[in-house]
Structures are given as C-alpha cells and as structure tokens.
Simulated scan of single mutants.
Amino acid sequence: MKLFDLSHPIRSGMPVYPGDPQVRFESALTTADNGVEVTELHLGTHTGTHLDAPSHAAPGGQTVDQLDFTLLQGPAVILQLATAATAEQLVRLEDLAHIPDQLPSIVCLATGWDQHFHSPLRERHPYIEVDLAELFWQRGARTLGVDTLSPDPTVHHDSTFEVHQFWLSRGGIIVENLRNLTALPDRVQMSMLPLPLEGLDGSPVRAVAWTP
C-alpha cells in the first residue's frame, strides 16, 4: 500500500487566507523549567489543509463535531485538468480531462496550484464554476476537495462565495489547501478527519490517500 500525505505542514508564520488569524506557536512549558514541553497554539479554524463545515457559510448548518465521518473517508475520485491551470482560471466542465457519470462521496479537483502555496500566486488560484459544482453534487459527491485556498475566487471576489453557498447550504463539506493531488491516480481511498472542535465552523485536517 502506498500512502500520500495531502496536508501542508502547520507552522508559525505560514500562509493563511486573507484576513484569517495568523499562525503563531509559543512555548508554554519547557523541560528545563517544568520537566515537559508544551506549546501554545494561535491559529484559526481554517488554517492550512482544513475543512469547512456547513456552519461556515450556512447559518444553522452542522458544525465540525456534528459531521458524518462517512463523508470524510473512503473512495475518492481525483479530477485532473486537461491542460495546465492558469492564474484565476474559471474551471468549467470542458476543462476536465474526464469526469465519471457517478461520483463517490469524495471528489477532489487537482489543479497543481498547491505548488504556489508559499508564494503570492496562491491568491490567484483557479476556481470552480458553480455549474460544475452543481454537476459534482448531482453525480453523488458530498465532500469537495481542492488544492487551492478556496473553490471560489480569492482575488476580486464579490463576497457571494457561490460554490461555498451552494455546497455548504446542502450539508456538504469543503476541504481546502490539499496538496499532491496531481500525483494521485484517478481513484484512491482517502481520509480527511478534523479535530473534534465542538460547535465550530472548521478545522485543520490530516489528509491522506492510499492505493492498494
């Protein structure tokens, strides 16, 4: 079995979505003074590779601790682009190399934009046309994964967050800032489990994929 690590490491000063809390690690206890090491973490619920629970954009939607784990682990389809992604590209159906008629609960769009996570280009990522998101949903997907900051545009967005609104208002889950999706085959097993953060809107996840 081959395992693929799909999560960006979380570290102090790492990139975050514009306006989100900055990430800081501070020593709370040390072995020299206290006999043990303990670190205090300062970060937002949407730090690094993370999931958006429905409550992130849908008032009254499920929170992280209420999510159905069967939507976050199991068979996944990885959709590759037919050609290399470009900055601020609107990804439509015709841009995909292939899409099955029936999708499992987990579908991930691989753009390769994770290579820009540590550069200013991360905010000029490709994003998904809402009609394409609707097609994913119609074909059975309930967890949408992307290797970008968001399935909606980050630069020049109009605050409507169309894909977020469509997906999360129906009880779906969005996983953002995945990495290494372009290295995966079309079908894998995947796990993207959050911390059990009671009543909260999102959580970092340790995302992994594997093949038999």
Rank of each mutant, 00 (worst) to 15 (best):
E88T: 04
L67Y: 04
G145L: 12
L121V: 01
E123L: 11
R92V: 08
D131R: 15
A84P: 00
D65V: 11
A85T: 07
L121H: 09
D131M: 12
W137V: 13
T63D: 04
W113M: 07
L149Y: 07
H125D: 12
G140I: 02
W137C: 11
T148E: 10
A84C: 00
P100F: 03
L149S: 01
L135S: 14
E94C: 00
L79K: 02
A58N: 11
L144T: 07
H118F: 14
D114E: 04
L144C: 06
R122L: 09
A85Q: 05
R124F: 12
A133M: 09
L79F: 11
V107C: 03
L71M: 13
P126G: 06
A141I: 11
D114C: 10
V77A: 12
A82D: 09
E123Y: 14
Q66V: 06
G145M: 03
L93V: 01
L149T: 05
Q80H: 15
I128G: 02
H116Q: 14
V146F: 05
T148D: 10
T86K: 13
D95R: 03
L67V: 10
P120F: 14
I99F: 09
A85Y: 08
R139E: 04
A85P: 09
R142G: 07
H98V: 13
Q62P: 02
L132K: 05
Q102A: 13
T63R: 15
G61Q: 07
F69L: 15
F117E: 13
L144N: 03
Y127H: 12
E123M: 13
R92P: 00
A97V: 01
I128N: 02
D131V: 13
I106Q: 06
V77K: 11
Y127D: 02
H116T: 06
P59K: 01
T63I: 10
Q138D: 09
P104F: 03
V91I: 15
L103M: 02
H98R: 13
D65R: 09
R92C: 15
H125K: 06
A133N: 08
R142H: 10
E129Y: 08
A97R: 08
T63S: 14
A141Q: 01
D114M: 01
H118W: 12
H125S: 13
D114H: 04
A110R: 05
A87C: 04
Q80S: 10
R124Q: 15
L79N: 05
D95C: 00
Q73G: 07
L132A: 08
L109T: 10
D131H: 14
L121P: 03
Q62W: 08
D131Y: 03
S105P: 02
E134G: 08
Q62H: 11
Y127P: 00
F117Q: 13
L90W: 00
Q89M: 13
T148H: 02
R124S: 15
Q80I: 05
G74K: 07
A58C: 14
E134Q: 05
A97K: 09
R124G: 14
D114F: 01
T86R: 15
D65P: 07
T148Q: 10
L71I: 00
Q80E: 07
V107I: 07
R142Q: 11
Q62D: 12
T148L: 06
Q66I: 06
I128D: 02
W113L: 08
L149W: 10
